[in-house]
Amino acid sequence: MSEAAIEATDLVRDFKKGPRAVDGIDLRVEAGEVYGFLGPNGAGKSTTVHMLTTLLPPTSGTARVGGHDVVEEGPAVRATIGAALQEAALDPFLTGTEHMKLQTALHGMRRAEAKSRSGELLARVGLTQAADRKVGGYSGGMKRRLDLALALVHEPRILFLDEPTTGLDPQSRSALWDEVQRLASDSGVTVFLTTQYLEEADVLADRIGIIDQGRIVAEGTPAELKAEISRPTLEIIPAEHGELARTREVLARFGEPANSSPKGAAVLLSEGEAQLADVVRALDADGIHLQHLQLHAPTLDDVFLAKTGRSLEGAAEEEAEQPDPEQAAAA
């Protein structure tokens, strides 16, 4: 078997105050792959990225990135990787060009080479016009794009993106997705992407690892993960709101309740879409008229629900009430 771009075995990180942030993670990311690390806030995604990028020593376990051990060969790992961590880490008082100069100089690039590389990267992320403006005046999307350009200065083989689109508007998000896809397909860069957005993982990742409370609870391609669930969700909105409780009762005969809009009721069909006709007949027999009926194919949220017993959205709210492991580390 060829050497993986990223490989972790039983990776653990404890913090003095707070829960175990990462609890025995095993993962293997092949070269050229886009790996999506999906989970709610506080699940352990950023702590894992910090360990893989050498910014945080693991409590136990091993990890190799680009063929180098993250504990024993930190400088070699850093030479191989680029990283855009949570929140674009930029100096608001410097311009885009000044950021590029600083980054290229610290990576030991000669002046001419640095100038050409900076110009190329700023053009690539669409910041040529804004390059001489102070970053404090950039929009969130522009900051993220500059962050990405800075991470690519030394042509890394492996790129870590920690929630790169959090807080961005749909247009900026889509532009960043295009760039990540281009990097992976045209330049063969291995991308390790953390996200709490199902759609982002679905669109970008070749394979996904779902992390919850420090553990990987599912792993595979988006199609494989959805196929594991294989049960579609049926959502019904009754014509009269007063019929909602009875609608729920009828649906409960066909599977477990699922998340739905406030006006409707939903069920995870226990025997698949073949039950659809039976459901409609049962509703008709009970005299319930329908305003809307929709059959949803399984989503990654369904996978998360099946693996953890919670929806990703609910888990995010729940985790938000827990102490943040990174803050606990700083404490």
Binding site: D91, A105, M109, R110
Partner: peptide, 25 residues
């Protein structure tokens, strides 16, 4: 790729520090 020398590192960070200070009236 070459590794940047200590002098280069100090130089670019000093420049950043001075520029950053002077840009904060």
């Amino acid at each position: 790729m070459r590794r940047s020398t200590l002098a280069v590192q100090v130089g670019v960070l000093a420049r950043r520090s001075v520029v950053r200070t002077l840009r904060q009236p």
